[in-house]
Design a protein around this nucleic acid. Structure first.
Lengths: 211, 211
DNA sequence: CCCGACACTAAACGGGAATCACACAAACGT
DNA sequence: ACGTTTGTGTGATTCCCGTTTAGTGTCGGG
């Protein structure tokens, strides 16, 4: 991961030159630091040092710091979306799909705490909404994949209370709350994570959906 | 609380002077700015300007910025605790007490979004855990008041799944998730807040507690 | 009258994000 | 061959931020 070799190629000038390589290097270095040290710990200078360029160079390839970290987050959220899409296509009943998606969601959050915080806990202090456009889009599509089966359940008249939309939002919010607390207050006397997730899912699904 | 401790006051050396007044002025100004502009917006210099002193003067009365804002938050959380204690003493059944406390909790969060974020969404990036000691204590006592009735329910064998402790944590986390999302992503297409809160409480209580 | 404690300030420090003015090489047009 | 353009970078600078240092003025006791 040292310095990239000077390119031996001569003739064809790449329509987009080594810029793309640099961009990739920056993203890789930034991801490592961001995962290890979080949003505040991933400073422009640290990333630039890790790549071996001046901090100014980052602004050649990214508008600002948030764009770097959001681009990293996009990758991660994209994986979550892929999992959701996969689950959505399985030939199982809607309630099982809902449960699997929520489980996958929580596991994703616990495995990518810094990314999760950036995207779903970032106060308006930290990132202005406009910058998040792409990332928010991905998040929305995750939610849509998730609310699909819920609307199936609602259409089947199996919702005990509320509309399909409110049920979907509540399920999402509840799971978000659990992982958000586990991430931001990790030192508490929490019950085992698996038990918390099970109680949450069993309780909510039993309470919201009739058999 | 937060009385200055070391008073080897040999004589009546003016234990109260402008100092105490200033402290109050600073807290008042800081609270106004913090409520309006959040953690990042409540700058030391802004607070000092509002009071009409130099920024250095704040360090006469507070160790650092976090101490100021946490002291403000302590007040607010103290009010929430008072409400919880009040509810805990009402002669109603345990499930109703749980529901009332969770409702009060969510309303508190929505009415004091910046305080709520500082205390319950503050990533370890923002505030090191030690500084939060007093505030965390208050939060713990709120949780204890809340988990009391839950353990009553558990002792009565009315818990459908999980221990009393995990049920309490799940209920708290779920409500936290709802208000946290409403606060941090306010522009979404949310169902009406009252409906979300109702669906959340109905669903969870129905799913976790047997009649 | 002096002395120390207090409340306070101006100036500075180190670190953050971001911008500016400029340098330098490769790729082209002629 | 020679400018010109373009991509890619840099060092210095700007503007905030929280916080620290060194110093000032004012007071109440001894």
């Amino acid at each position: 991961m040292t310095i990239a070799l000077k390119k031996p190629h001569k003739s064809a000038r790449k329509p987009k030159g080594d810029g793309h390589l640099r961009r990739g290097e920056i993203l890789a270095a930034a991801e490592k630091i961001f995962i290890a040290e979080g949003y505040a710990g991933a400073t422009i200078r640290k990333i630039a040092d890790a790549v071996g360029v001046s901090s100014t160079a980052l602004y050649m390839h990214f508008r600002d710091k948030d764009q770097i970290l959001l681009e990293i987050s996009d990758d991660a959220i994209g994986q979550l979306l892929a999992v959701n899409v996969d689950i959505a296509h399985r030939p199982i009943d809607a309630v099982s799909r809902v449960r699997l998606m929520l489980e996958a969601y929580m596991r994703f959050a616990l495995e990518n705490p810094n990314t999760y915080q950036l995207v779903f806990c970032g106060s308006r202090d930290v990132i202005s909404k406009e910058k998040q456009a792409a990332t928010a889009e991905l998040g929305d599509r995750c939610f849509e994949e998730f609310s699909g089966p819920i609307h199936e359940i609602a259409a089947a008249g199996r919702l005990r209370t509320g509309s399909g939309e409110s049920a979907a939002q509540v399920l999402w919010a509840a799971c978000h709350g659990l992982v958000a607390l586990l991430i931001t207050i990790p030192d508490r006397n929490w019950a085992p994570r698996e038990e918390l997730m099970t109680v949450m899912l069993d309780g909510l699904l039993h309470g919201l959906v009739t058999d």
